[in-house]
């Protein structure tokens, strides 16, 4: 960060003041040093409501450099409200270049997806996290969950999976599927579909997670072991679809169901719009 940080529009570079960014960066260093550990930070008020990605935005604001290229996705798409507004926000307060192409981006802020195109070294993926505590649904007390993390008391995580199999015959958790990071901390990978869980394992890119309301951040550094929890006789599996993407024909991507009319018409298309488009352009 340079000294002349004030923009023409009166905001400091990337909205947050420099002291706040330093505080968040210190938290991030700790998070990277202890993969999967939830670091508390003094979350700031952002100019949008909690639940819209304030945690992710604060992390983005504190790691963004003036020469970085930013991409923002919401459920895989570059053109939905949340993605468009956050992109416009950083264009305005940081003056950075933005893109929709995964390969060209240095920093990618994401809501609930990991791009289909494999990330490479040097890229940063920043997740917006609603509830960072994977044990929350089992144990409502924050004091108790912290102790459980400290003492590695993770037996209860399997209670939830057991309950899934008992009720549905298979592990019915399809998003926010709990993972164990580096063989130590059980972590909520934010509500990404479990389809994306294998991409967390030994990733090339650094992955940062920010929860604005809960004021917690955590990280999965590159080349870190990430295992999805499962049972010996009910191993972890990702979703599969019968049909390929209706637009690009991809068979190995996460598909969204799109209702096309009120006669029951529907189609399945890639949730990652940039990937889908690039495949269509390749063929054309």
């Amino acid at each position: 960060m340079t000294a002349s940080v004030a923009n023409a529009n009166g905001y400091n570079f990337a909205y947050l003041d420099e002291q706040t960014k330093r505080m968040i960066r210190r938290g991030l260093l700790k998070a990277v040093a202890i993969p999967g550990y939830q670091v508390p930070f003094g979350g700031r008020e952002m100019p949008m409501p909690y639940g819209w990605g304030t945690g992710g935005m604060q992390l983005t604001a504190s790691v963004l450099g003036q020469d970085d290229v930013l991409k923002v996705i919401d459920q895989g798409a570059d053109d939905t409200t949340n993605a468009v507004s956050i992109r416009a926000f950083f264009e305005r307060v940081a003056g950075v270049t933005t893109t929709t192409a995964t390969a060209e981006a240095d920093v990618i802020q994401t809501r609930h997806r990991i791009p289909e195109q494999p990330l490479c070294q040097g890229q940063l993926l920043i997740f917006q996290v609603p509830i960072p505590e994977p044990l929350r649904f089992i144990e409502p007390s924050e004091e108790e969950t912290r102790l459980m993390h400290a003492l590695e008391e993770y037996g209860v995580m399997h209670v939830k999976l057991y309950e899934d199999i008992a009720r549905h015959g298979h592990i019915a958790t399809t998003y926010a599927y709990p993972v164990k990071v580096d063989g130590r901390y059980v972590t909520d990978p934010s509500p990404i579909p479990k389809f994306d869980n294998p991409k967390l394992h030994m990733s090339e890119a650094l992955m940062l997670f920010g929860a604005g309301r809960e004021k917690r951040l955590y990280a999965i550094p590159p080349h870190t072991r990430v295992e999805s929890l499962d049972f010996d006789d009910h191993p972890f599996e990702v979703q599969q679809w019968d049909a390929p993407c209706a637009i690009c024909g991809a068979r190995d991507t996460f598909l969204d169901e799109v209702i096309t009319d009120d006669q029951g018409g529907r189609m399945f298309v890639c949730s990652d719009t940039d990937y889908c488009q690039s495949r269509v352009e390749e063929v054309a």
């Binding site: 089992i138 008391e153 037996g155 209860v156 399997h158 209670v159 939830k160 057991y162 309950e163 199999i165 008992a166 009720r167 499962d230 049972f231 010996d232 006789d233 009910h234």
Partner: peptide, 27 residues
């Protein structure tokens, strides 16, 4: 007891805490 989960999950919890990871055996 954990009131939010089934009887089987309640009985299995301590086994899972000890590292039992086989659903059939837990059941």
């Amino acid at each position: 007891l954990r009131l939010g989960v089934s009887a089987g999950a309640n009985i299995g919890e301590r086994l899972m805490a000890l590292g039992e990871r086989h659903y059939g055996q837990l059941r």
